[in-house]
Nucleic acid binder design. Structure first.
Lengths: 242, 242
DNA sequence: CGACACCTTGAAGAGGTTCAAGAAATGTGG
DNA sequence: CCACATTTCTTGAACCTCTTCAAGGTGTCG
């Protein structure tokens, strides 16, 4: 990977509008300044392009500034599993720490920009700034807990429940970023949703259609409007009962 | 939770025979000594008893000295998902860091003993000992990667493949601890295996029977002998084909 | 505008679940 | 130490959900 296709810009976290999302709280001015040093540069990632790939050397974590990513792992025989969808303010790359190389692909689903944070520097600085150390630990722990939730979904929910949980999760995260509580644009294909949810794309499509029939959502391609959040919540929290 | 039912013993990691499994490598003598301070005490956990429970305050990570655990999460409506099985040398409790409380149950599947490592102290010490800091990060990253693997399994494998992957994973970890490559005793019920693998206990049982018919394994209750590791590997790595 | 990727829907089929019954192991108390 | 209760495991048969295969429709981008 050459440095040629990496657009780079120097920046500062201390006045980034995503600060509350990706930075620790309760730092004093001096600490905030120092944390700026963590972000070495920014990098633009074109839609459909990988930020990193399975097998690539690990060196940095990435904070998403704009855009939308998917991460996916592959088995030896070429099976593919989407392990998550990430949006502004979220951190990707944690998988690479164990073995000093990435074990999944991170692909931009729309033109994106990330802050590159060399992990050496994160470790260095988090030895000195307790709040940063704690923050890093929380981010990793949060990812572990998130994955527990996905395991619950994959292991014990039926198609409708999975899709309902997926939509609620997406819209909730978008809402936390100032977007609508009820409207969203899916940045991923039915196939990618299916991969994430352990379903075939046809099942995803059919389940969407069922939700539309039931008046729970409106769907126009990738535009989704949630008409009845309660119904979705109910689907997730009260098994079967249909 | 009173301290009465916690059996406690003072100990030292520096001469623990699990050192290579749960401690960072390449420390000098002084650093090793200091790491002993991390383990405040040991605690015995009786079979069927929780080490910690969902909702409990988080304060420590636990290194398993002896015994075998399962961790499981529950959804609001009482669905239950086993998220992992842990054995000697492995660390549990990472889920608690984000919100200062545990989000899953850890239950001993046989009488067990754990080293209690207050997380405050881990953080303190890992600010001073780079090797420990890196080690903590690796442990968390490893857990994230492990869960990616489980997601792949749950999202894209069929029953036989799941059980094959499960057996191979177990026996490989046991082998790393000096046990047989081909024989193992399952510490968990069919139902717990099923929960972990996203299958019903009947399916687990039937799949075991199929493996026996095919001469891949011998099964007598919880005693399993693997007769044909290759066949299991093949099942995992080459989808379907029959 | 045409090519390509993406989405929807139907019909048939497979894999896993559910329900049920019985067998085997395990634990308990007398 | 044995008898009994309980838990765990196995197996069968019917059923159901999701998948597979196929075809056509819709949207998008150069």
């Amino acid at each position: 990977m050459s440095a040629m296709n990496l657009q780079t810009i120097k920046v500062a976290c201390s006045n980034c509008n995503l600060r509350e999302l990706c930075m620790p709280m309760g730092l004093n001015a001096e600490e905030l300044d120092r944390i700026d040093e963590v972000v070495s540069l920014r990098r633009k990632v074109k839609r459909g392009t990988p930020l990193f790939r399975n097998g690539e050397k690990f060196s940095s974590l990435y904070a998403i500034r704009t855009g939308f990513f998917k991460t996916c792992v592959a088995s030896e025989d070429g099976r593919d599993q989407v392990t998550g969808f990430q949006m502004a303010g979220e951190i990707i790359g944690l998988d690479g720490i164990v073995n000093d190389q990435h074990t999944c692909d991170a692909v931009a689903l729309e033109d994106a920009e990330v802050c590159v944070m060399p992990f050496d520097r994160i470790e260095e600085l988090s030895r000195e700034i307790n709040g940063l150390q704690r923050h890093v630990h929380k981010i990793m722990s949060r990812e572990i807990v998130r994955e527990h939730g996905v395991m619950l979904l994959l292991g014990s929910m039926r198609a409708e429940e999975r899709l309902a949980a997926f939509l609620l999760n997406l819209v909730q995260r978008l809402h936390a970023r100032g977007f609508s509580q009820s409207e969203l644009i899916l940045r991923m294909t039915r196939e990618e949703i299916g991969s994430y949810l352990g379903l075939k794309l046809e099942t995803v499509s059919r389940t969407f259609s069922k939700f539309v029939e039931d008046g729970i959502v409106e769907v126009k391609q990738r535009h989704v409007r949630i008409l009845n959040t309660e119904a979705l919540t109910h689907l997730v929290n009260h098994e079967t009962c249909n």
